[in-house]
Design a protein around this nucleic acid. Structure first.
Length: 951
RNA sequence: GCAGGGGUACCCGAGCUGGUCAAAGGGGCCGGACUUAAGCUCCGGUGCAUAGUGCUUCAUGGGUUCAAAUCCCAUCCCCUGCACCA
């Protein structure tokens, strides 16, 4: 057939659209399946990473529709953000325009791929229809006390001209542009995500995220149990609060260290001779680069601040230092120095010749006063406590004892600290949701009343390259307003929201995307979001940021009575990297742009080899989906993507594999084509074909349900074809049997290659379209195992015959023209039958096998006794390396033996086929002992494993 | 350093609740059929040995077991995340 995907694919896409095949509606009588991909930022065209993401999602959506589920599979765009703003500056336009032209371009790419989205739920977060609900929910957050505006040291990216959330800083660099971030003090809007720290952490145990994602989130939340302890500063009213996870080491404190930025530093040393040293240290810490930070790990530095702190439990006075290794943002920004039991403190103490005290012993027999060469950081019995009642305690008990004592004296308490910080929401950028707040000179900060929403982004802003800062701030018609509470002139907030806010609830909006009276209807969300999104597919890069924010948001909306569910995502699948070859220098261990392929390493001059690397613009090893679609069609690209690797695994791009998948499609087409000429001509192999359909269907459903798409496709696009080919080879050509098979096959092709599936469905004369089909379960047929085992018996004879023939050829001078097959003698078959029967009764062959055998009649014949014994062992206990046959025969094979099938008859019935396959003129078969023992092969004959000789 | 995940035949990749595993499937390569020929398609082969049940293989070295790619321990290497978090 002429296969023209450029004609065929759009044609079916139109049919789907006309029939609204993918429109989802609530139907409580059906089981729902919510399939979602992390929606894209519309950056112009779709890239291969998108293709992989959506091909996985689409296959699953289509599969579950075939399974009769009510599938919600929407698509939209995360369309606020910096790139559009930068592009607008460059082109002198407005981000709104840039965004919309990008959206239509990526959307048409997606449509060309044939993804089965319910486009009626389309949304773009930068549209006011969407972001007005951002604002609405911001007011709700505010009402619930989860919004806070405060001065805070923030991460500032000079290049992006805005602040960044902690999650957006990677290695002290901006996640977007890679520039190093600087610290700045600013008034900022925060969402109090830490209110949910415990739930965010604890719920991780109950959700099915991949383990690495859970770990990342756990690390990020970073809960630690410990104690807050106040150390009064000697001779002042000040108190230094420290956080420690090891209150059991309190008696070992020999100094206190605060971060150089700590507010107490100045108080303590101002005007003293110590002040200079502190200022130097502070300055040094403020401007150190990332590179120096890593070096600093080895180099602990500190300065004495001129005062002592008092250990609240022992009353001892210890010096206070400012230290470069204390993180100002964690805990209280101050730590107690216990050099005996913390390696960092130990290093510090050595450096500054501070006392090292042992207050825990490792083993019971250890001497409490022995000197230490390193810190002992484990748990152990307390020793050397300066007050009674503590020595001898260890671990949790010791910690508790210290905490209670501190609590009694009011100088400390048990405390849980988190690494997680509140979500810094505000951005000093234009292209985001305006924060609906108003600054009034007399009333302070006042929320915009709900009825005044939305606060719209002005469309009459001109963007230019020279511009710096936020254009909103200088746009007077936006900024100037009146105070909603007192009515005097006031100023609008010009900060906009982090775009992660937009993506924190879009999955709920999709449930009710066109609602214009509220963010979403509760009933709709409760239906679709029950147990969360059933399958959520996206990149690992969002493991902490998006996935944590979305979890937080869902809990907040739940607590506001907007929905029932507390965890937004059920099963999360993070698709693997898409790699492609890139030039590589093993000497320098680095990859280069594809422009260098074939030439020498630009830095060391060695010859460049090649290795696979993540597809990236900077390496130039990307592949354009459009090119591939126009060359092979969407179905081939989809098949390649799904067959190349399971969703989570990384995969390598390969042009030759893509071509091979294209050829596979042609072969499948041939199969469907050839059936059209068949007539009514039934044969035995027809039963085998339908047995294979049922078997493959069962395997396919299992694999697909597990999101093992590669395995699923292996069945639907490879195994099915190879079974078809075998059927043809065996002379099958019956119209009704093949139609039955193809009718079962066509829908199985739909998840990966939906256009082809529709074409075939029509070709074999079925009504309707596959997209609307609920697949019939072909069910089970009790004879299938037997049918397949019988065919396998023939296949095995051919397969081992082929091996043996090549061996035989070495020994035979004349041409081989005949194969003699001696089937198992009756007594062996009986023995096998007996073994199977006993095995079904859980007979213990190890213990009782021999006794049982000796009681059998066959064992009485002295001449064959040895052979009987051998056969029995090979059937039952097996040898050292091989298990007994009773364990290795399939159920079908066991039935063949149990039914005492006449192997000779089966072979004779298929002798023509066997002869052709083995390239001989005649096939002769008889039971061993009933004819000449050609080649002495009779003794090898065993049930289902006849002796084969070539002559 | 800590945590998570890995190392399987020429390559990619399954298997890893121990036996049916010389190890699925694909790519590549080799051979055969078809063809005027190439391509396509189909069939076979692809550790070594061998007229069949044998030997050596699943990062390395040990161990458990009648039996290990699969379980345990140690080592080496790779990826990913966090990184002076008290």
């Amino acid at each position: 057939m002429t296969y023209d995907p450029q004609e065929l694919e759009p044609r079916w896409q139109n049919v789907w659209a006309e029939q609204e095949a993918f429109k989802a509606q609530i139907d409580k009588s059906k089981q729902k399946f919510y399939c979602l991909e992390m929606f894209p930022y519309p950056s112009g065209h779709m890239h291969m990473g998108h293709v992989r993401n959506y091909s996985i999602g689409d296959a699953m959506a289509r599969f579950h529709r075939l399974m009769g589920k009510n599938v919600l599979y929407p698509m939209g765009y995360d369309s606020f953000g910096m790139p559009a703003e930068n592009a607008a500056k460059k082109e002198g336009g407005h981000p709104h325009k840039v965004t919309h032209s990008n959206i239509s371009s990526i959307r048409s790419d997606q449509e060309r791929m044939g993804y089965s989205y319910d486009w009626s739920r389309f949304l773009a977060t930068s549209d006011v229809d969407y972001y007005k609900w951002n604002q609405d929910m911001f007011l709700t957050l505010n009402e619930r006390g989860l919004v806070e505006r405060r001065m805070a040291p923030v991460n500032w990216c000079v290049d992006c001209d805005t602040v960044l959330a902690n999650e957006q800083v990677k290695n002290n660099r901006c996640w977007r542009c890679g520039l190093e971030v600087v610290q700045k003090d600013m008034a900022q809007w925060f969402l109090r995500m830490t209110e949910y720290s415990d739930e965010l952490l604890d719920e991780l145990d109950n959700i099915s995220f991949p383990e690495n994602v859970k770990t990342m989130q756990r690390n990020w939340i970073g809960r630690s149990n410990g104690a807050h302890i106040d150390f009064p500063v000697d001779g002042t009213d000040s108190v230094i609060g420290v956080f420690t996870t090891r209150p059991d080491t309190i008696f070992g404190v020999t100094f206190v260290t605060v971060s150089p930025e700590h507010e107490l530093c100045e108080q303590l040393c101002a005007g003293t001779k110590w002040e200079g040293g502190w200022r130097n240290l502070k300055e040094e810490c403020a401007k150190i680069s990332e590179f120096e930070r890593i070096n600093m790990l080895k180099d602990k530095k500190g300065v004495f601040l001129g005062k002592n702190a008092i250990n609240p439990i022992s009353g001892e006075k210890v010096p206070i230092y400012a230290g470069n290794f204390v993180v100002s943002s964690y805990g209280t920004g101050a730590v107690m120095g216990v050099p005996g039991h913390d390696q960092r403190d130990f290093d510090f103490a050595k450096e500054y010749e501070l006392e090292i005290k042992r207050v825990l012993i490792e083993d019971n027999g250890d001497i409490p006063d022995s000197p230490q060469h390193r810190a002992f950081e484990g748990y152990g019995q307390m020793v050397n406590s300066s007050i009674a009642g503590f020595d001898g305690l260890s671990g949790e008990q010791a910690k508790q004892a210290v905490i209670s004592t501190l609590e009694e004296s009011g100088s400390g308490r048990g405390k849980v600290e988190y690494r997680l910080k509140d979500w810094l929401l505000s951005r000093q950028r234009f292209w985001g949701t305006p924060i609906p707040m108003i600054h009034c000179e007399s009333c302070g900060v006042v929320p915009v009343p709900r009825e005044d929403l939305p606060v719209q982004l002005p469309l009459d802003v001109i963007f230019t390259e020279e511009q710096s800062g936020n254009p909103l701030a200088s746009h007077s018609s936006f900024v100037d307003t009146r105070c909603p509470s007192c009515g005097i002139n006031a100023r609008r907030e010009t900060d906009t929201m982090d775009t992660f806010y937009d993506s924190s609830w879009y999955f709920m909006r999709f449930c009710d995307a066109n609602n214009d009276s509220e963010p979403f209807d509760r009933q709709a969300v409760d239906y679709w979001m029950n147990d969360g999104v059933d399958l959520y597919i996206g990149g690992i890069e969002h493991a902490v940021m998006h996935l944590l924010y979305a979890r937080f948001f869902t809990k907040f909306t739940r607590d506001s009575g907007m929905n029932d569910v507390g965890e937004p995502f059920g099963r999360l699948v993070c698709q693997g990297m898409l790699n492609a070859p890139a030039p590589y220098c093993s000497e320098c261990n680095s990859e280069y742009h594809v422009d260098y392929s074939g030439s020498d390493c630009p830095s060391c001059g060695d010859q460049l080899s090649s290795r696979s690397a993540k597809m990236s613009k900077s390496l130039g090893n990307t592949v354009s989906p459009e090119d591939m679609i126009s060359k092979y069609g969407a179905d081939t690209v989809r098949l390649f993507i799904l067959f190349g690797a399971n969703p989570e695994a990384g995969m390598d791009w390969s042009d030759s594999a893509l071509e091979a998948n294209n050829r596979q499609i042609y072969s499948i087409i041939d199969a469907f084509e050839s059936s059209l000429n068949f007539t009514n001509s039934p044969s035995d192999i027809d039963h085998w074909l339908s047995a294979r359909l049922r078997e493959n269907h069962r395997k396919w459903v299992k694999a697909m349900s597990d999101v093992s798409l590669r395995e699923g496709v292996m069945v639907s696009h490879f195994q099915m074809l190879s079974d078809w080919n075998w059927y043809i080879r065996r002379g099958g050509r019956d119209k009704s049997a093949t139609i039955q098979f193809l009718k079962g096959w066509a829908p199985m092709l739909a998840p990966a290659t939906p256009h082809l599936a529709e074409e075939f469905w029509k070709k074999i004369g079925q009504g309707g379209i596959v997209a609307n089909l609920e697949i019939e379960n072909p069910g089970e047929n009790p004879d299938d195992l037997l049918t397949m085992a019988k065919e396998k018996f023939v296949k095995d004879i051919i397969s081992s015959g082929r091996n043996l023939k090549t061996l035989a050829e070495r020994h035979s001078k004349a041409d081989i023209t005949k194969v003699v097959i001696q089937t198992s003698p009756k007594w062996k078959a009986d023995l096998a039958l007996e073994a199977i029967r006993l095995n079904d009764e859980n007979f213990d062959f190890e213990e009782e096998g021999h006794r049982h055998l000796k009681a059998l009649d066959v064992f009485n014949n002295e001449k064959t006794r040895g052979e009987v014994f051998q056969a029995w062992s090979s059937f039952t206990t097996g040898s050292k390396k091989k298990r007994g046959r009773i364990h290795t025969w399939s159920d079908g094979e066991k039935s063949l033996i149990s039914m005492e099938i006449d192997e000779t008859k089966v072979i004779n019935a298929n002798s023509g086929f066997i002869a052709t396959e083995l390239g001989v003129e005649t096939v002769e078969a008889y039971g061993a002992g009933q004819g000449e023992d050609v080649g002495g092969k009779a003794k090898l004959a065993s049930p289902l494993e006849p002796g084969i000789a070539f002559v």
